[in-house]
Write a protein that binds this DNA or RNA. Sequence first.
DNA 1: CAGTGGTCTAGACCACACG
DNA 2: GTGTGGTCTAGACCACTGA
Lengths: 239, 239
Amino acid sequence: MKTEQSISQRLHGNLKEMIAGTKTGDRLPSEPELARRLGVSRATLREAMRTFETQGLIHRRHGAGTFVTRPSQVIESGLEVLESIETLAKRIGMQVSMGALHVDHRLATPEEANALGLATGCKVLHLSRVILAEGQPAAYLVDVVPEDLLAQSDLDEGFTGSVLDLLLHKKSLALSVSRCDITATNASVEVARLMSIQRGDVLLQFVAYLYTPEGRVVDYSFSYFLPGYFRFHVVRRVG
Amino acid sequence: MKTEQSISQRLHGNLKEMIAGTKTGDRLPSEPELARRLGVSRATLREAMRTFETQGLIHRRHGAGTFVTRPSQVIESGLEVLESIETLAKRIGMQVSMGALHVDHRLATPEEANALGLATGCKVLHLSRVILAEGQPAAYLVDVVPEDLLAQSDLDEGFTGSVLDLLLHKKSLALSVSRCDITATNASVEVARLMSIQRGDVLLQFVAYLYTPEGRVVDYSFSYFLPGYFRFHVVRRVG
DNA sequence: CAGTGGTCTAGACCACACG
DNA sequence: GTGTGGTCTAGACCACTGA
């Protein structure tokens, strides 16, 4: 046997077993206790736990503990068609809810103004909210919309979490396509806090521009997805 | 002023300035020196450096130092059409080369056999290689192909890094589409070493199945992209 | 060989949750 | 208050590079 492994690799395996052997929803031992039991320092333990958090297998709650979560279903979607997460979830019969909605009227930043084709200083509506899948934070969505397109009254009439669905219901507005840039990123301090994950955790990120048939951008959005809860795919034709 | 910031946030800013003020290709001070100068511990410094490595702004070389790299051009591509990175790079006039090619004949794992629609125990060809953009590792690609489709002679006749281009040149083989799953992941120990990035660094990951018109899978591939070097996008029509 | 980044440790202190 | 996870430190040791 030449199974030399680094401490972190062995630890990864040990943790995987331990998580597998814990019932969904149960709490793991505390970090100092777990570190002692597995014979590693707390720093090393926490580093190893990151990947499991990314996969949605554990969920840490500051002050409360680390819990085993095990997403029972992934949200799967093709990227050819733009659909709201709510519509998508409903279609596949998955439980999704909205948490921590923040609505804000403010002046567009130069970047936002540029993206939306507005003059600097125009007012925009900022909408940010966390999407909970089976009660766990799974995505964080931010939409920036020109203020003249979406009034407060539109939101009061029942906002369920999807700006897209709201815009689709406005009969006066036609939508055509969305251009979506896809990348991977580390969770910033802010996003990490809102999704209650660790700063630096890996997230799939979409930056999207929603167009009218005339070519006007009516929604500029950032979406952050915890990889374990989603599976996005695209069919590519051979060039 | 109520600009309270955590140490890590302040550090992030300091580092950003320092990198911006360093010429491309130059070496940064050593980690102990940098940590002392910025008034933080080495662990905190290294954590803060991760994001810059992800963005392709710095490049660490074990035993040699940390260098400022600054990718002069990103590789941008739509996902509707499948193109090899080499073809893509050539089209936009970017310098791309191949490093660390590994070719291996082996028995298909159960997972690979399943993906390729083979019986367990069939032989497959494993091809893995690193893609260098401007001399820096930017992507790591792994292709698994049934052995009857790609002989050693095909490779000897000049393999430039793209399995897709190789398959396209086989007149006996027709290709139709590729199904591509997109996710974000942490660099494993192996991938991190090959791309000379840190274990745990964030990568964009594609898992793809290449089909013939008859529906046979002829290539099962994993691709890992360092976010700073690539920009992938897709146009989504409104449902 | 000296100097660099890669890994790991032990421990401190803080912020938050829950009874 | 007690116990949890979140952050940060100082330092050790190893593996690698390059003169």
